[in-house]
Amino acid sequence: MSNVYQFEASSLAGLPVPLSQFSGKVLLIVNTASECGFTPQYAGLQALQDQYAASGLEVLGFPCNQFGKQEPGDAAQIGQFCESRFHVTFPMFGKIDVKGDNAHPLYRWLTSEKPGVLGLEAIKWNFTKFLLRRNGTVFKRYAPTTKPEDIKRDIETLLAESA
């Protein structure tokens, strides 16, 4: 696979979503969890969405229960939590695995394109972030400890590039 637009994922409602529908946008893809110490980052992710959506940014959230079982809810509970607690308007997808034998193909691709620390591909925790260019290629990977607001300069750089 050469870009993110060749993948498909399920929405929280269970419907297939071809990622090609985000073609031409700068994407921030994040594996999320509702009961994690980093969960307050939802507010920062939504702030990025609010600030840059009109310029072409789309945040995409992928709930995952692989780290400390911190996303135990079903799709309805995840959606309700994100909406009521953080007023999330960016697309949230169905719960997936982001590492291991059952990792979603999207995450296999993301981690092979941008390995983490020491060249290790595996996602280590919730709220690992991948920033993608408008052409669907991976620009940078960020640790869970990287706050959404600390990614603004990179987002602005990519938004200024043409598709």
Rank of each mutant, 00 (worst) to 15 (best):
F81Q: 05
H87T: 13
E83Q: 14
L57N: 05
P144A: 12
L106H: 05
T128F: 01
D150I: 05
L27G: 13
T89S: 10
S2P: 06
S11N: 12
L120F: 08
F22M: 10
E149K: 14
A47V: 11
P16T: 15
G14Y: 00
T111I: 04
M1Q: 11
V17G: 11
Q46C: 03
L131I: 08
A76P: 06
L15E: 08
P63H: 01
A9Q: 03
I151H: 03
H104D: 11
T39D: 13
A122H: 00
S84L: 12
R141D: 09
Y5P: 13
K152V: 14
G100T: 01
K129D: 05
L27M: 12
E121R: 02
F139R: 14
T145C: 11
F67P: 00
R133L: 15
F22L: 05
N3A: 09
W109S: 08
F62I: 04
G44T: 02
S34P: 08
Q70I: 04
G119T: 03
S10C: 07
G68I: 11
Q51V: 10
K114Q: 15
Y142M: 10
P40C: 09
T39G: 13
E149H: 14
A163T: 01
F127I: 09
E156C: 15
L45N: 12
K129E: 09
